[in-house]
Design a protein around this nucleic acid. Structure first.
Lengths: 312, 312
DNA sequence: TATTTTTCCGTGTACGAACACGGAATTTCA
DNA sequence: TGAAATTCCGTGTTCGTACACGGAAAAATA
């Protein structure tokens, strides 16, 4: 070691990699996007990009997906992963309870795992990649507040099993806290859940909430803002300001139409890319990786959206 | 080639690089930051990071810097670069006229160049890395507008030789256009230039403009927003909303104190990193690089700033 | 102290592409 | 058609590290 530092010796990574020929298999366990335009395609694009780059190192990927409405599928796919015994896994702990059980098995098999998108604290992950959901809720609160001279606010969760979905709750909490901290009394806040959007019955229900409570602002806690957009178009509720999450195709359309005013984004492709990279650094290069990697909380409007769409 | 595609042969980059041992020298010509906290340190941090990574490839860097107030220095350093004959250069075309002359010489010597931060269109650059300044002006306009129920707006350029500094003009143009497009008549816009901040005389002058014209919002076209912050602190003009550019230390302080409400940012480290990368791709790997690379227009507030400070 | 176990050290081979070289084949040109 | 120029092709060496191997030295154990 003394001589290494005396000569300032740096190993030649090319020679090193050429000679070593290591290999590893990584698995991903992410929600199945309901269509090509669904949010969950994006993290996977980043995963694939990094995997392609790491092909030289003999890294392979084995993707698994589960339904966003059916925890049993999550369990089933998790079983398959345990059988496969990969060298590492990228995991969206979408269902909290089921994830905890899965994690126990991963630990028993010594399989390192990285969380993406949402987080279970101190569960033994080597890293978490994603937003600080609470903080992004604060940002949403601030922006909607800025746009509203008066009127009340409706928070909509388009999701099933809310108590099993931690980061939507966190976003809501941050949102509420904005108004608490700035001891606002000009707006009153309401929350509603829409577990099922397959038929349009929910629209009537939400519309009546809006009318009854003088709602002038809507905050959607996930990427399904476009449903709120459709509602507003259908009933021509044009004086309502809307804020939501993620650069999904239909959301972009409503942003451009000025029905949605802001989207809070989190560079999902980058997250997928980073998650695989963390595994690689940990498993193959055996280097330490930071346990948390909060990604930026991007504020997107009509005017700056063109500079966020592309992933490089 | 047929057999290559039949076998799906992909060259092994490690073996390739191990055997080749190419080398190249790149130069940078960027403004000298007046202190450690100055904006122009940031792009250079990114430059250094990429250079460190490319050291394995035999890439070296030769940095040159010039004063932000003295075009003659730019010319002098440019001469040195021509003598050095590097294999490529990253260039901030800070002074338009002087840059054009320099570029002519670069072309004669067949030295490829990449613009960073601001752009001269169709000058023969292999790429431009930076923001679309006009568009970022629009964003600033929108945000300040959102915050101001009434009152007038002052645009401040903290810069010398404005007609030689294109992107400040572009930002101003975008800013004005926001109010034109939304045919706003609630706010009247004023512009002033502060070429010299060495003594505090400018403060009196600007203060009187503010008082005379019922100014309630300030837009600073570059990273010197903190001067506006000092002005506001000094005269306790607390009802004025301020927006400016770049995550410079003192700007961050004023953002946290809520004297500055928004900062528009452009990931300068990433820009430096990308600029070197573009050169590398073009010069060493001989691949084509996209001519424009507009970076995102990040909207930073007190609430999301913590997720932008770090460069990874 | 004798024996086993572990560490140390030097040698030899492998990794896959680059590049030089020389001879053969092909093309160009008069 | 013959000479010169160019392209083609196969061989051999090189880049710097990894890793296996065997023998020697050192450490651990009985």
């Amino acid at each position: 070691m003394k001589i290494i530092s005396e000569l300032d010796y740096k190993p030649n990574i090319f020679a090193s990699n050429l000679a070593s020929k290591k290999s590893a298999v990584f698995a991903t366990l992410l929600p199945q996007p309901p269509s090509k335009e669904g949010y969950w395609n994006k993290p996977f694009i980043g995963v694939q990009k990094r995997i392609a780059e790491l092909k030289q190192f003999g890294i392979q990927i084995q993707p698994f997906a589960f339904s966003q409405t059916n925890p049993a599928e999550f369990v089933r796919e998790a079983e398959k992963i345990i059988e496969l015994k990969p060298d590492g896994i990228v995991l969206a702990p979408f269902y909290r309870k089921e994830s905890l059980e899965f994690i126990e098995k991963l630990k028993m098999n010594n399989i390192p795992f990285v969380f993406i998108d949402s987080e279970i604290k101190n569960a033994g992950q080597i890293s978490y990649i994603g937003q600080n959901s609470y903080q992004s809720g604060l940002v949403s609160g601030k922006l909607l507040d800025l746009m509203l001279p008066g009127g009340n606010i409706l928070i909509i969760h388009f999701a099933k099993e809310m108590d099993n979905q931690n980061h939507l709750v966190e976003r809501e909490k941050g949102f509420y806290d904005w108004y608490k901290k700035n001891n606002q009394t000009t707006h009153q806040l309401f929350t509603t859940e829409v577990p099922d959007t397959d038929n349009e019955l929910w629209m009537e229900k939400v519309k009546s909430i809006i009318e009854k409570n003088n709602i002038k602002g809507i905050f959607v806690t996930n990427s399904k803002v476009f449903y709120a957009g459709r509602l507003i178009e259908k009933y021509k509720l044009t004086d309502i300001k809307v804020i939501g999450h993620d650069l999904v195709k239909w959301n972009i359309e409503y942003l451009k139409k000025d029905i949605v005013q802001f989207l809070i984004c989190q560079r999902p492709e980058e997250q997928g890319y980073n998650a695989i990279n963390k595994l690689f650094r940990y498993v193959v290069e055996k280097s330490n990786v930071p346990e948390q990697n909060y990604t930026s909380i991007d504020i997107i409007t009509k005017e700056n959206i063109d500079y966020y769409k592309e992933f490089k």
